[in-house]
Design a binder for these strands. Sequence first.
DNA 1: CGAAAGCTATCACAGCTGTGATAGAAAGGT
DNA 2: ACCTTTCTATCACAGCTGTGATAGCTTTCG
Lengths: 203, 203
Amino acid sequence: MPRKVDADERRRHVVEALFRVAVRDGLARASLRTVADEAGLNIGSLRHYFASQSDLMRFAMRAMLEQVGERMRHGLADLAGQRGAPAAQRIRTAGKLLGELLPLDDVRRAEVTVFLDFAALARTRPDLHDLADEAARGSRTAVRRILAYVTGLSPRARALDVETERLLSLLDGLGINAVLHPDLVTADDAVRVVDAHLRALAR
Amino acid sequence: MPRKVDADERRRHVVEALFRVAVRDGLARASLRTVADEAGLNIGSLRHYFASQSDLMRFAMRAMLEQVGERMRHGLADLAGQRGAPAAQRIRTAGKLLGELLPLDDVRRAEVTVFLDFAALARTRPDLHDLADEAARGSRTAVRRILAYVTGLSPRARALDVETERLLSLLDGLGINAVLHPDLVTADDAVRVVDAHLRALAR
DNA sequence: CGAAAGCTATCACAGCTGTGATAGAAAGGT
DNA sequence: ACCTTTCTATCACAGCTGTGATAGCTTTCG
């Protein structure tokens, strides 16, 4: 069975092309043809790796979610070892961790930008429902764990219900506004807002 | 100059049709043809009132922004008369007012839903930039005034900078999450979160 | 009445889209 | 060498899209 090219490598390459198109022109314009062009591939080749548009979209979104999830998991793992740290330091590490969900550099800016389009699109695309739900649940439990770390409460504490939703919505809105209105909300602004929230929470 | 039909009435009718399509299938599918069908009009008739797709889109968004803005203005006007009210009551009226930006009933749910699509679309559509900016600035000053009312500070106070961004992002994220994941965030949840934020703020 | 303006309806066209089908080229195992 | 599988490249088709042009209807004014 001949295989001169690494299929996984190719798929990654295509996903990167899709991201560039989506950031530049919007996810709606990331068609098979435009993505193939951006990747320097013929549409026939692209379709050899992705059977349909839905396949391509799902694969790309999965790749993004796993990329963010991986970073989050790494950060969360480090959390266990410093449960007794002073409040000021816990707030700092929590802020650093939550920053993974904010557009603080080009990579994360692209992630948030594409995710915004993706979330909006998934609302009316049944084939994307499961991924959108998975993302929503994943970010919720991550934020909840971070809140448990900051407050010292158990992750199962009822008191974290509204606080989780509060912080998560804050992060989502902050990221979106930073992406949509970079002149009104800079990366520094976003960090300041999260920091203020955590400090207010620690009282 | 013959005018058997009221043009403004017609335009409102078309905008309502656009909203129904956008809520149901997404703003991207609100084409001239689908909107004309939804409104029970021929595409030729529709194009007599809206010269281009951009015209239709801009008119519909303007109508929505003015609708929300009108409600906000009314609420903000009532605020001036109760500047000396007890904290608990000020929080309640502030919450009521901020609720105008949340999907707490069918009308506001439609507004937030369409606005999400609109904001995402405007990012890559130069002809919508001005409207998106106007909306962003408008909601910011409204939230800032409400915060001034709650805290007793001047609307021009530097201390309100981060608090405004914090509350506004919270509202945006909350509305979006309530629209995208109604099973995870109900209308009651949203109200509870805003209330918790305001109470934490009043300390 | 007649003319003019507002309004409705339809055709045509170019440019997209996803997808099915198919034909070659390239490469590795036997 | 040959054959099989992978991969690349095209063509064709139906279904959308916005938009220009145009013809005909309807209503109201002079």
